[in-house]
Simulated scan of single mutants.
Amino acid sequence: MLIGSEADGAPAAAAPAPAMPLQTFVNHLEQERAASSDGLRSWRSGEEMELSAIGILGDAVAPRRTLGEALRLFARGFPVLQSNSRISLEVIGDEAHVCYRVLDPRIWPRRADAELTLGLIRGICDRYAVPNSAIQDLCFEHQSDRDLRVLAHHLGRTPRFGQDENRIVFSARVLANTLRAEAGGDDVMTLSKRLDEALTELRRQTPVAQRVHELILAQMERGLVNQCHIAAQLGMSERSLRRALAAEGQPFHEILEECRRVHGFALLVRSDRLFGEIALLLGYSDQTAFSRAFSRWYGASPRELRKMGAEEVSVIR
């Protein structure tokens, strides 16, 4: 999380608080959730959060005229708030899908984080007078471990668990809803410029290898992980990308292999997908190549890994 000192109530002139590692942040939320008997604690924390509490991103989102503008800006600027994660907004027919993922499969479980983040998105929607009746679906990656009636009663819809991603779906018509009250403070253009500058600085400071790693994890299941495609997304030629990664001592094939290892392990132990399907999702030519790679990495076959998966907490080794 990249929340500065002003968000914590410190004077504006104070030095920014250091970034909290995402693993630490998610673990902290999970511990708070486990210690509370309130089934809505994490959701409400997000839903009731003031946008000013999330710093420059919240400041830029707050005055946007329509919900569509606010959510698109929130998705684009999310990296300044939280690393190794992705928010997306996609309109499919008459539905608007807002999805949230922590890209690193090793950060698990992350129930509280998912509930907090989707709650925050619901809170943004509330600023634009979106009723609960507009919500058409609510999905979580994690399995249900609480009484569903509390959240179902709060939203008027029973969530679905064990899904591919965390997602809230509502009628696309509400994207045109306008802000309930006129926002004060700096003008929209100034706030957007500050966010753009923060994103540019973040990209400048982030190692190329880390950016490649996140892009691969974000798109692996869509088959868009070849070096040419990743280079294009970074605005680089393949040759420039190879040079940059060589300078950091992390060639593309090693990053790709690591992403296959951690993402493949998560698919094995947290889903019931067929081994052949997982092999294709990871970009292997056939199931045999996939099995050989995982046997080499873990000293056990994919079938054996799946059997022992219930006892695994993390793929960090």
Rank of each mutant, 00 (worst) to 15 (best):
119 G>I: 02
133 S>N: 05
140 F>D: 00
131 P>K: 05
174 V>P: 04
165 E>Q: 14
171 S>D: 15
186 D>Y: 10
130 V>S: 01
173 R>Y: 14
118 L>H: 09
165 E>T: 13
172 A>Y: 10
198 A>Y: 05
112 A>T: 04
169 V>W: 12
191 L>I: 05
126 D>P: 03
168 I>Q: 00
163 Q>K: 11
116 L>Q: 05
126 D>Y: 10
111 R>I: 06
113 D>M: 15
154 H>S: 09
161 F>G: 01
143 Q>G: 13
189 M>L: 09
195 L>P: 00
148 L>W: 06
191 L>S: 02
135 I>Q: 07
187 D>I: 04
160 R>Y: 11
156 G>P: 04
144 S>W: 06
124 I>Y: 03
204 R>W: 10
205 Q>E: 14
162 G>C: 02
133 S>R: 15
128 Y>D: 09
161 F>L: 02
122 R>K: 10
179 L>I: 08
127 R>H: 09
166 N>D: 06
130 V>T: 00
168 I>M: 05
191 L>R: 13
121 I>S: 01
153 H>K: 13
149 R>Q: 07
190 T>R: 10
178 T>Y: 09
140 F>H: 01
147 D>Q: 08
140 F>V: 02
185 G>W: 04
169 V>M: 08
192 S>C: 13
113 D>W: 14
182 E>G: 10
138 L>W: 05
199 L>C: 01
121 I>Y: 04
154 H>E: 14
146 R>E: 07
194 R>K: 12
195 L>E: 02
143 Q>P: 00
111 R>E: 09
203 R>S: 08
117 T>I: 11
129 A>H: 12
140 F>Q: 00
202 L>H: 10
123 G>I: 00
180 R>Q: 08
166 N>G: 04
147 D>S: 15
147 D>N: 15
163 Q>W: 04
177 N>H: 14
157 R>S: 04
178 T>M: 15
120 L>W: 14
119 G>K: 06
151 L>P: 01
189 M>E: 15
132 N>R: 15
152 A>N: 03
139 C>P: 00
133 S>K: 13
167 R>M: 11
132 N>Q: 11
196 D>T: 04
124 I>H: 02
147 D>Y: 08
136 Q>H: 12
138 L>M: 02
184 G>C: 06
191 L>M: 10
178 T>L: 11
156 G>Q: 10
128 Y>H: 13
198 A>H: 05
111 R>D: 09
127 R>Q: 08
193 K>V: 12
116 L>R: 10
148 L>D: 14
167 R>H: 08
133 S>A: 15
113 D>Q: 13
118 L>C: 05
186 D>C: 06
143 Q>T: 09
183 A>C: 06
201 E>F: 07
113 D>Y: 11
